[in-house]
């Protein structure tokens, strides 16, 4: 597993250059900004910030070019997307009820010995639903892989080769935010992490989210009141034991112990890590090291500063 550093949002107070210095990386860099979609190459600020030594892998644009030439793959991609949209709708319908029930159990007063098993059971049902949804989404991915074999198509292979050649000359991979679903499927299509091998990864915002075992979507500040976090699908799974929540200050009600508790309990035993500007966590191979001030959500509804989270997973 490569060295991984996850950062908070970079737009207003970028810290990628400081991070790279702290990691002793001063050579050329590869970047993925596919989450920005059509704005993928508008990366001048990022390049300036890291001293111009950055090669954009242009995964979004490569994918667009592939779809122009390989109509069959494009249609398969769309078909998978349609199936995933439908699955997401069905999941949401069930999730709403399951989370309402879990919330009600948390809000219902009573003796701990009576209530705690009920609360635990309610969250077990949510976790089971999350797991089921992630499995169904994975089925659509596998079906797509089986039917359209993207990794064997000449045009995809050619692009992967080009990407591999760029990566060969780079010391680290930067993964920026944007649309997390787009970023994830572009990184999967080009097997970006496989090609990067053991090169250090620095990722932020949606870039940090895709590294997790599951990509968790969240937005509690909406015109319709706070909704519930959703599992989008399995992530790239190189970031064990933690789930990053970028822009937490804006997107989460961190002042509300009930909302904090709901997130923390639902995703146990993984730690939910709010990631705002200047937050940073580093994977050491056995544990996550938290930069000073970086916090995690606790199952009792508090948001506390954390120094390290040990991994339950054996080193790959």
């Amino acid at each position: 597993m490569p060295s991984i550093t996850l950062l908070g949002p970079q737009r207003l107070r970028p810290s990628v250059n400081v991070t790279l210095r702290s990691l002793g990386i001063d050579g050329p860099l590869a970047s993925i900004t596919a989450g920005w979609e059509e704005r993928e190459t508008e990366d001048a600020e990022l390049r300036d910030h890291v001293g111009g030594r950055c090669f954009n892998l242009q995964l979004w644009e490569r994918c667009e070019r592939i779809f122009e030439r390989d109509i069959e793959l494009f249609k398969g991609f769309r078909k998978r997307k349609d199936a995933q949209i439908r699955l997401r709708e069905l999941y949401r319908k069930q999730l709403h009820h399951a989370m309402d029930a879990a919330k009600e159990m948390l809000e219902t007063p009573g003796d701990t010995s009576l209530m705690e098993p009920e609360r635990q059971a309610a969250f077990d049902r949510v976790r089971e639903l999350d797991r089921h949804h992630a499995d169904r989404m994975l089925e659509t991915e596998l079906e797509f892989e089986r039917k359209y074999t993207p990794s064997e198509r000449d045009i995809v292979v050619a692009h992967r080769d080009q990407i591999a050649r760029i990566l060969e000359h780079c010391d680290a991979l930067l993964v920026a935010g944007g649309n997390v679903a787009v970023l994830l499927n572009r990184m999967r299509l080009f097997a970006a992490l496989e090609l990067a091998g053991v090169k250090p990864i620095v990722a932020w915002s949606a870039g940090a989210m895709v590294m997790s075992s599951e990509v968790v979507l969240f937005q509690e500040d909406t015109p319709h009141g706070a909704g519930y976090a959703e599992v989008l699908q399995r992530g790239l799974d190189v970031c064990p034991d933690v789930i990053p929540f970028p822009h937490a200050r804006k997107r989460l009600h961190l002042h509300d112990p009930l909302r904090v508790q709901m997130l923390a309990r639902r995703f146990q035993p993984r730690r939910c890590v709010p990631m705002d500007e200047s937050d940073r966590i580093d994977w050491t191979g056995e544990a996550w090291k938290f930069a000073p001030g970086t916090r995690a959500l606790d199952a009792d509804g508090r948001v506390t500063k954390v120094r390290a989270v040990k991994s339950r997973r054996r080193r790959k």
Binding site: P9, R11, G177, N179, A206, L217, F218, P223, H224, E230
Partner: peptide
Amino acid sequence: EGLSWLFPGPSLLVYE
């Protein structure tokens, strides 16, 4: 309120 309820935007998907 009406449009964003009927057609939820990608804010849930976008994290810059």
